[in-house]
Design a protein around this nucleic acid. Structure first.
Length: 546
RNA sequence: UGGGCUAUGGCCAAGUGGUUAAGGCAUCGGACUUUGACUCCGACAUCGGUGGUUCGAAUCCACCUAGCCCAGCCA
């Protein structure tokens, strides 16, 4: 099931040569938003690669920018990651290392490899040059080590205003790699930090902080996405010149992008504000919290991610592939019950009035461990509207129609005798007869029914709310149109339906409603008002032939 | 236009000089079926292009083309 990948090859090589005894990885999110399916690749791959090769995995919050970060995001992320089944060895924060980072930066200063720069942001931008022309040295680039030492200490002590000065690495203003044009290491920013409170008024920048965090933790393989490829030289530069005892290796891979899904923070925020979606955990979103609420099993996410592998190229994966892994998992694990979403009434004319009998039925034909339940049968039933048509259209029709006999799953054969229509010409009732010799499990084999359909006994059925979801965005004609113009008006449809009476659903358990799809209880459910989300539909090879 | 990276069937993805070019998703046939599900069989590519090296190349070289990333005191 699991693809080979180039990172595996690297790790195996490092183990073989004795460079490392075991791998140590980490997932380093900035706590400034919500995790989505795309992040699951980084989380699961970091975790499983470490565990599989006998190492361990850390969760580290990269909280070096207090104005964007918040504790509520760290709690949410921990919940999502734990839900995916990734047990971190340590929960760490970049901010735990602020003192050491400061000391390492000071080391750079004393080695003449970093300097305090007084240029304004605009000037810095100016001096940086652009993609095709080299930058110019800052006039402050050649301050003495003593002066820089004093100035950097003064920055820490709060002697300057926000933004007044920065500490920069002295590398090469003419480098064709923009990241090497004397990158900023520290900025002055008086902001409350969720972890260090008001202890610091200077904060390290990503390019400086990240390699040190990895090195401090002894991370062996530091996985990140492709856009950091040209940061690798600077990553290595800081590890080396800061004299870090342990040397991590940055390896870049392609992010997981799911086609035609909304994952951008500002986009989702707008959908929430506009009321298109009900929150960050709306089941139509592919945020981890949304998938969880919808009823997607985390193991299905893991299987999907492992099947995708870890490429160095960047593609877009179709959401259908993900859904297939959800079905694949649920097909084995989910209990089956009968549910009817668009009911029509079936009256069994030769069945006694006011009588309901109980029939035993397995929850899963091929998985006995899931046990059995009793299914009620009586004179009045509900079947799915689309399972009946007055005149059998062709030999392929494997459902109910006048004069045809079908099996009601786990019950009896019934034959349709008469249709009652309402004033609008809609089918109101189908009158049928049943044959008591055909009871399920009796071994009756004299006739073959025209297919098998499911049903719910009306008097004992539980009425439930069912939420049917479709993709938030319509299949793209022009993918560049604004999101508001691409929204699917039917992304959420709420229906009243019925499920069989003797099953008490447990929260967050996904059921298969036989022949319809997988459904799981939503958190909005109440004792007397069960609410189901459709997790995924079942596949169907049924084609309407003209 | 400077630098970095990528390019294998509709989608994802193995493959690193000699294989019938893995596998998954999708699709199309067919078998089975108390779910038109599941399961099971079968079909489905010559590797962005062009030259070259080689007995032999998706794998090496050259040139070309296309796409992505980089000019935050964001990560």
């Amino acid at each position: 099931m699991e693809n080979r990948n180039f990172i595996r090859t690297i790790i195996e090589e490092d183990l073989r040569t004795g460079k490392h005894a075991f791998p140590i990885t980490r997932f380093p999110p900035e706590p400034n938003g919500f995790l989505h399916l795309g992040h699951a690749r980084a989380i699961l791959m970091n975790y499983h690669l470490a565990i599989e090769y006998g190492g361990y995995f850390n969760l580290r919050f990269d909280d070096t920018n207090p104005v964007k970060e918040d504790l509520i995001f760290v709690e949410g992320m921990k919940e999502d990651i734990a839900w995916l089944g990734c047990d971190w060895k340590n929960v760490l924060f970049a901010s735990d290392y602020f003192e050491e980072m400061y000391q390492r930066a000071m080391l750079l200063v004393t080695k003449g490899l970093a300097y305090v720069c007084d240029l304004t942001p605009d000037e810095i931008k100016d001096y940086r040059g652009d993609l095709t022309s080299p930058g110019k040295d800052s006039p402050y680039r050649n301050r003495s080590i003593d002066e820089n030492t004093a100035l950097f200490a003064a920055m820490r002590n709060g002697e300057f205003k926000d933004g007044e000065k920065v500490l920069r690495a002295k590398i090469d203003m003419a480098s064709p790699n923009m990241n090497l044009r004397d990158p900023i290491i520290y900025r002055i920013q008086r902001a409350y930090h969720h972890n260090t409170k008001n202890q610091w008024c200077i904060y390290p920048m990503y390019d400086f902080a990240h390699p040190l965090e990895d090195a401090i933790e002894g991370i062996t393989h530091s996985l990140c996405s492709l856009e950091f490829e040209d940061h690798r030289p600077i990553y290595d530069w800081f590890v080396k010149h800061c004299e870090m005892p342990k040397v991590p290796r940055q390896i870049e891979f392609g992010k997981l992008i799911i086609a035609n899904q909304i994952t951008g923070k500002r986009h989702i925020r707008k959908l929430v504000e506009d009321g298109v979606v009900e929150g960050w955990d709306d089941p139509r979103l592919i945020t981890l919290s949304g998938l969880r609420r919808r009823g997607i099993p985390p193991k299905a996410i893991e299987n999907f991610i492992k099947a995708l592998g870890l490429p160095k190229s960047q593609g877009e994966t179709e959401i259908e592939m993900f859904y297939e892994y959800v079905r694949d998992y649920l097909s084995v694990e989910a209990r089956r019950i009968h549910g009817v979403i668009d009911p029509i009434k079936v009256v069994i004319t030769n069945y006694p009035e006011n009588h309901v009998e109980s029939l035993e039925a397995p929850f899963h034909r091929d998985n006995e461990a899931l046990g059995t339940r009793t299914v009620n049968f009586g004179k009045v039933l509900y079947i799915e509207r689309e399972d009946f048509i007055e005149t059998k259209p062709n030999k392929k029709w494997k459902r109910l129609s006048l004069g045809e006999e079908v099996r009601l799953m786990h019950a009896y054969f019934i034959k349709a005798m008469q249709v009652i229509y309402d004033d609008n010409g809609e089918v109101l009732e189908v009158h049928c007869t049943y044959d008591d010799k055909t009871k399920s499990g009796s071994g009756f084999n004299d006739r073959k029914p025209n297919g098998t359909i499911h049903f719910v006994e009306a008097s004992t059925a539980q009425e439930v709310e069912i939420r049917l979801f479709e993709n938030l965005l319509l299949e793209e004609n022009d993918r560049n149109a604004p999101i508001e113009e691409r929204l699917n008006p039917n992304s959420k449809v709420v229906r009243k339906g019925y499920i069989e009476g003797n099953v008490k659903p447990k929260s967050s358990e996904a059921f298969q409603f036989t022949r319809l799809g997988y459904f799981a209880l939503d958190q909005d459910s109440k004792e007397d008002n069960l609410v189901f989300n459709r997790v995924v539909e079942l596949k169907s090879s049924y084609k309407i032939k003209k």
